[in-house]
């Protein structure tokens, strides 16, 4: 089965360009603003959209995304509202791949079967669930794959050659390479090391590989994109959003554009990487 994600990567490969994958948190700083931002992302140059499902205890995230989860929860975001937001987005956009990213507990209590069904119905294309490793695949990954969702797995600098096949086995859509051993939004990755790691992953899979964690600027994005199929930018966007809020975390007139301006810059950075893209 070809998914929206497969189609998007194929189209970008034709153009010789890496995908810009954006991460923002659903419901940050509130439902309406977050929906407006979501609708504006494709036009600004996001090739694939990752929406964070806010969680009270985001163990793999740094301060920026922790705070963004807290803002969303405080504004009343729930799993049901996140799915409703995606349904509303899909009414006007049938093409842009959309991936939900988050932690397992809110899915587990949803519960799993209902969540997968509602994802399909809402137009979600894939899931990234940080705390469900291959060792627990029968919980969520297999049911999601069987229902037609992509299950995108993280590979990390600690995933050695011996373990990589297990990580890749039930992965679909793309592989998300976590460029640093650490949490989101902190250290900047070393481009050379990242390219080496991506090349090693690509020796074992046909899937596209996107790189994330710590990518902040158009220059960095361009450098990473020279040796990868996609670049994920999250904390930098979340920080731009945060900077546009007032002291009570209320959005201003420029909240959406503060994020989309940055996305536009990143997209231009990637567009100019065209000829550099290997593969």
């Amino acid at each position: 089965m070809t998914t929206r994600i497969d189609k998007r990567f194929a189209a970008l490969r034709e153009k010789g360009r890496a995908a810009l994958v954006t991460f923002t948190t659903a419901g940050d700083p509130d439902y309406e603003t977050s929906l407006a931002l979501l609708k504006a992302l494709p036009g600004a140059g996001a090739d694939i959209i990752e929406m964070g499902m806010p969680f009270s205890d985001p163990m793999a995230d740094g301060p920026a995304i922790q705070a963004s989860s807290q803002r969303a929860l405080k504004a009343g975001q729930t799993m049901k509202k996140t799915l409703r937001m995606i349904r509303e987005f899909r009414e006007g956009d049938q093409d842009t791949p959309l991936v939900l990213m988050g932690y397992y507990n809110p899915i587990y209590v949803y519960p799993v079967e209902g969540f997968i069904g509602d994802c399909i119905e809402a137009g979600v294309d894939g899931l990234i669930v940080v705390d469900v490793p291959p060792e627990q695949d029968d919980e969520l990954c297999i049911p999601a794959l069987e229902a037609g969702l992509n299950f995108i797995r993280l590979a990390t600098p600690t995933t050695d050659a011996k373990r990589l096949p297990a990580v890749l086995e039930n992965t679909s859509g793309f592989v998300y390479y976590v460029s640093i051993a650490g949490i989101t939004g902190t250290a900047a990755p070393d481009t050379g090391e990242v390219h080496g790691a991506v090349a090693r992953i690509k020796m074992q899979t046909e899937l596209p590989v996107a790189v994330g964690f710590g990518v902040k600027t158009p220059e960095q994005a361009r450098a990473i994109a020279a040796g990868a199929d996609g670049v994920v930018v999250g904390s930098a966007l979340v920080n731009a959003l945060k900077a546009s809020l007032d002291e009570n975390d209320r959005p201003g007139a420029a909240t959406v554009s503060s994020v989309t301006d940055l996305v536009r810059g990143l997209a231009e950075g990637l567009a100019s990487s065209q000829t550099a893209t290997v593969k």
Partner: peptide, 12 residues
């Protein structure tokens, strides 16, 4: 029980 951790920690 089980092992519900991020991939970075799994090998450890």
């Amino acid at each position: 029980g089980g092992r519900f951790v991020a991939e970075t920690l799994m090998p450890l």
